[in-house]
Write a protein that binds this DNA or RNA. Structure first.
Lengths: 173, 173
DNA sequence: CTTTATTATTTTAAGTTTAAACTATATGCC
DNA sequence: GGCATATAGTTTAAACTTAAAATAATAAAG
């Protein structure tokens, strides 16, 4: 294995991992902070969605995708856009359908396909949730400079691009 | 309800939500990008942990906390540090224990308490995972400036602070 | 001492999540 | 047509997740 970089090699493993409690590499520190911040926000958004609208976060995400596609989306496309696995989409759509918020249609020209679409009730509910959702985020980030918000958006975009180019299945491109 | 700000009121709801596909407020855009980036990274880390070490991400997180506390941690403290609910910690520790990576002890002086501690096997496995984990992150973020990584860490810290001060249960402090 | 409140953890029910196996189409090729 | 292959969804098993209810043990009050 790697013998250069003399940095993550086995020698100072203990120092790295169990050092003065702040010995993590910058990328790891950034990652841990992104993760904890994201967790903090999702927990709060989740709670508010539940108490104020009786909805879950993944339901909100899924409905958000359908809201802007009045003609509906195939489940596979929904899966891709929400970054949720295929099997998971099946269950989410089922539950939303049984709540009358989503309906499913199978086009005749390709009977493998299922297209999910918001019902009027689903669209109405989502519209209300979306307004609240934006207000919540503005509230939660109220103490952050507008300029910093914009810069973060841009810089995190660079992180995202780097990550995408280094995923396991990215020997190409 | 609010009548000022003439911005999220019911009038131009459609415009806001279904506008030119980029009409979200900056905070919402930042949030969606943080969320998708985090999801991208966790999915990748999860896959590598599974294929290379047969571990899950929450197991890794939990073991990370125990690794730096050789004397172990109470389950409640573990719950707080990992941002995982109490009930969830119970199950995670149970599974890790049955894999021989963690052991549980109940001190005599307070028999309500359970302290979890890594076994030697658990510590050995975590040490290996931690080294790989740092390398993965450095790899995934390889195209991001070192300076930007540091700035992001700092600025996301400001976001985190703002969020913490605006959580539902934060009328105080 | 004994009731009451607090603290620590577990249990429960419903939902989400993943990876992998499976079913049902559809398409391509001979 | 008839078979291989690819595509779209569903199902399955195991784990994770949450919120809320239940247990258990300690501490506090009277």
């Amino acid at each position: 294995m790697d013998t250069m970089e003399n940095d993550a090699a086995s020698a100072d493993l203990e120092l790295i991992l169990h050092g003065p409690a702040g010995a993590a590499k910058p990328e790891t520190r950034l990652w841990l902070r992104m993760l904890s911040t994201t967790k903090l926000i999702t927990t709060e958004i989740r709670r508010r969605l539940r108490t104020e609208f009786g909805a879950t976060l993944p339901q909100f995400d899924l409905m958000a995708q359908l809201y802007r596609e009045k003609n509906g989306l195939r489940l596979g496309e929904l899966s891709r856009r929400t970054m949720v696995t295929n099997g998971n989409v099946t269950g989410l759509v089922e539950r939303l359908e049984s709540d009358g918020l989503v309906k499913r249609v199978t086009p005749d020209r390709d009977r493998r396909v299922t297209v999910a679409q918001l019902t009027p009730a689903g669209a109405k509910l989502f519209a209300a949730m979306a307004v609240a959702h934006e207000a919540w985020l503005r509230d939660l980030m109220a103490d952050v400079d507008r300029a910093m918000v914009a810069d973060l958006w841009s810089d995190i975009g660079k992180v995202k691009t780097s990550v995408r180019n280094h995923l396991s299945g990215s020997e190409f491109e």
